[in-house]
Nucleic acid binder design. Structure first.
Lengths: 184, 184, 184, 184
DNA sequence: CCATAACCGAGACGGTACGTCGGGTCTTATC
DNA sequence: GATAAGACCCGACGTACCGTCTCGGTTATGG
């Protein structure tokens, strides 16, 4: 949707997509840390400058490469029972963060954001927060920032910090606690 | 307590400390991202190899430089009222993660851990988790991994992900919810 | 005459020349032994990799920096009298090897060649041998490899090994001996 | 023959010899260029400081390790026929410089001497020059520095500079020329 | 016979150059 | 004017060797 009208060759959407595909591939092949702008360009069969024309950092291009996957992976179909609905979401979230390439990308970006203000800015409209809020709303639970934090925070922090994520049984007890408290 | 008994000149504890001090300084002066092994060595007035002799990565030396501060900063004196006790801890935790140099270091390390298994291993015995568990125990609350996650997870995740940490009022409501649920 | 036709930015002849100039300067300022690839790059105001792109060793770049001077310095105008012609050449050769920067470079390269096969290969088409052969030919003397060795060998060896080079009187006697023997 | 009489442990002649042996070994195993003071010490099973106590540079210790071999290898038994005597010496000299480890060491030292004044000083009393002078004297030929240079210079320069040393036939013609000229 | 002092091995120390790699910019020819 | 290619400057990487120093331990002499 580049609205340039001036002279000259327009930017190649094909290039853009090649680069994003290359990032996807490299993420699973070499991981985030070993991924370089140079490597992305070569993998995509693209000049280095072309990458910089669209995005200025590794984090930006990675975000764009994965952002669609974020929404898709975190979209869980509703369940009539609120408890099951919330539990389903948290299970999907755990799987996403632990195993999926886009989840790994998300964690890597979250990591960069801790010592890079620019990356932090990119994550301002966090896909995780908004998807969790949606689930809370459709189950009639509170969905303010505290509620969202109480809902996903324990899961997220355990994945980021702990040696192992919360297991399904723990997730069930977590949901129970929240639902009980919110209904009171 | 380095138990070298072999021959040769012993390693200089003085050098070790100079390096750790340099890391402390550089953390506040240039930040984690701009800190390099080269820079550390030069700042400490030490040969580069001497740094590598003690630690092999930036993360390792940073961890050791800050690990004492972690424990110190996260130690909050007990309050007779459990609610006040827990709240005090969470406030201190928030301050620590947002503002203190060691807290910034902790976040940076947490970030690295997301795409570096070696760093993750370093953080296996997480200072945050253990200090939080201690506070929970002394207030008579449950202190298993789920409870700890429920306690600090929302705070932590909001700091790591969100645009702003939970404010004191939200923290108070969070503590109330947990205490109510746990007492039931 | 680099016959690149491929794509990409062409190598900068300007850089090449800056580097060669820097080598020339450093040779007289700090000498061969203290000359480093790092120092050359910095002196030339050039990235280190740019030096390595053109030449892979200190010896190679030094050779290229001086090879033109070699030919120039060792070119002595002909003298009608063969004895004077030969003597003039040997005097010039002595001066070249003892005092001129390019001569010092030549000796340094000769030295490296003794324990570095790659440098030896660089000196395969020796400028000294060919210039001496030319002088011998124009005076009607034999110019095979033995004759060249007999002509310049004593001068060269005395410079390389001895405490002092052959003085002009000795050079005169040397030329007389050779001319007498060759005429017989 | 260190004439110390004071207290303290005397220097170990055994160490000295171990070091010299190590240098001999390393010379043939890794060559001069790859030989380091560190490597010598380790090979000799000796502290680094012990090497420095006896010699201060690689060149010094190498010279001492080989100097005895120099004299030995360059000593050729006399032949009643002067031409054969001189020829025998030059053949031995060529073999020495081309093939023998001590000969290779000599060339390496000669090389260093071209850009290191200290090494040059070490070679002031050149073993090659003096042995050649001895041979000239015993055949009744002139033995001043010019004569020595005329005798060995062509051989030496061809070894140092040329692609190949003078072959035996060339050496024979060289000797003939000199003897003829000197007898006249 | 023991104190002194120089030696010994080992290896850590501050430096410095190595050759490589990635970052981000630029300059070509080509499209 | 966008593109692929790739050279450019810069600076950090981790390693190697330099020559010095500091250990514990050894071995002679001299008080």
């Amino acid at each position: 949707m580049h609205t340039r009208n001036g002279p000259g060759r327009p930017r190649s959407e094909r290039c853009r997509q090649d680069i994003l595909d290359a990032v996807d591939d490299l993420l699973v092949e070499v991981g985030y840390a070993a991924m370089t702008m140079k490597g992305i360009a070569e993998r995509a069969g693209v000049g280095r400058q072309t990458v910089y024309r669209w995005w200025s950092t590794k984090a930006e291009v990675l975000l764009e490469a994965c952002v669609e996957d974020f929404a898709e992976e975190l979209t869980v179909e509703a369940h009539p029972d609120p408890a099951q609905d919330l539990l389903g979401y948290l299970c999907a979230l755990t799987t996403f963060l632990i195993g999926d390439p886009p989840g790994i990308a998300y964690r890597a970006l979250l990591g960069e954001a801790q010592h890079d203000a620019a990356v932090r800015e990119l994550l301002r409209d966090d896909p995780l927060t908004s998807s969790a809020a949606a689930v809370l709303r459709r189950t009639g639970s509170p969905a303010d920032s505290l509620a969202v934090a109480q809902f996903v925070g324990p899961v997220l922090s355990q994945v980021l910090v702990g040696p192992a994520p919360l297991d399904p049984e723990a997730l069930r007890r977590h949901v129970d606690l929240l639902l009980t408290a919110w209904r009171a």
